[in-house]
Design a protein around this nucleic acid. Sequence first.
DNA 1: ATCCAGGTATAACAGGGTTATGAAATACTG
DNA 2: CAGTATTTCATAACCCTGTTATACCTGGAT
Lengths: 235, 235
Amino acid sequence: MSPKPRATDVKDRLVEAAIRLLDDGGPESLQARKLAAEVGVSTMAVYTHFGGMAALVDEVVRTGFRKLSAALAEVGESDDPVADVFSLARTYRHTVAEQPQLFAVTFGQIAPGGKRATLSDLTTEAGREAANEGLEAFDHIVRATERAIEAGRFRPTDKYQAAAQLWSALHGFVTLEASGHFGPGEQGIDHILIPLGITLSVGLGDTVERAGRSAEAARAAWRAKTRNARQGGND
Amino acid sequence: MSPKPRATDVKDRLVEAAIRLLDDGGPESLQARKLAAEVGVSTMAVYTHFGGMAALVDEVVRTGFRKLSAALAEVGESDDPVADVFSLARTYRHTVAEQPQLFAVTFGQIAPGGKRATLSDLTTEAGREAANEGLEAFDHIVRATERAIEAGRFRPTDKYQAAAQLWSALHGFVTLEASGHFGPGEQGIDHILIPLGITLSVGLGDTVERAGRSAEAARAAWRAKTRNARQGGND
DNA sequence: ATCCAGGTATAACAGGGTTATGAAATACTG
DNA sequence: CAGTATTTCATAACCCTGTTATACCTGGAT
């Protein structure tokens, strides 16, 4: 079945190098020749392993969604589902802000070579898997929303509909922030994202006081987590 | 001062042709040679009038923001500012959905050739003007928010902060819808966008009943407008 | 009539993705 | 163990796209 798997990790190394080039030099650096030079192979590797640059980019997109989904999975579930929503928002925003170039590609917004990525016209296998990973990321928001409804914090409504509202708002903020609105640095979080979360929570049925306390709890949890991460040394 | 203004409208025709190519064939169709063929000139025209494809794309971006701003300006101001917010949302969504390729470029999300457009690294004059036009579009939301606060519908808060929340949510919905989530057609409007607007209005201080009535008023106004547009024949 | 300045076409160059081809390396087969 | 098939990879070319160098042409100024 496998006559010559001489260096099978070339495929993975190509994807890793692609993300590295992307982070460093933006989409214009994501070129077959640079990629090959980075890994130490010829450009043919791109075609034997992926079939072309488009499919390799699909794989990069898939990796982005997987990273996002993994980051959201790490948030876990506390006994305050609304605080969990705020934690998911902070994590979503942080993950994207850390690798803006990767996620610009991931969200189908930039595509090296000028291709569009409408999720409907995903042809490659990796592209379809990427769409699934994206839904998986969304599912974390759905579950937190469901628990908020069950806990009586949100009015009983369709959980997907409510989660889609939260996702829209969160994604819009992250996108606009990444595009340079809301100024540089982290000021957009306190000035817009957290107030936006409170507005939505209240609009979905929570009280201003409880939503505010949940936002504060999520902020404390976030500080503790980043402090541990810095002490721990990784990331 | 003007030695040979033989066909000065070439510049405008290039931008028009660029948008046409974009709408029809996506960003990959936006090429200097196709553009020149479409207008009936040589590729040199791109360089004498713009200096390169990048500057031409900046001009396309500027046109997109101007269209958006003009569409929002047409909404006008009624005596129900919250209904105006809903009307702005419908208009924003409709304008983008009508020319998804154009606005994918406009929002700096796709850039033919794989360039990024972070608003911070806009070098050309057209790029800076585009950013201003974008702020102008945002200003329509700010003004409606301001009137909602003055009318006592929204709690007194910073109008920019509240408007940024509305903008994030609206932009996020439009972006995700354009990427293919929320399914095809217009179902996302009733299922997500309008409920999202009600959620935000309530969260910002309005009552559920009044927000719902404003949403309904905006829907009626929208139907009347589209009916007139169809009868009128244009668009 | 002559000169000059700017727009234009032509043709070449540069740098991307892609492909044809052959060599090298491994697993299966006898 | 020899041979064969199959997969990976390097080389070199090909095509397409943005860009540029150059000469021409046009229209107004002198």
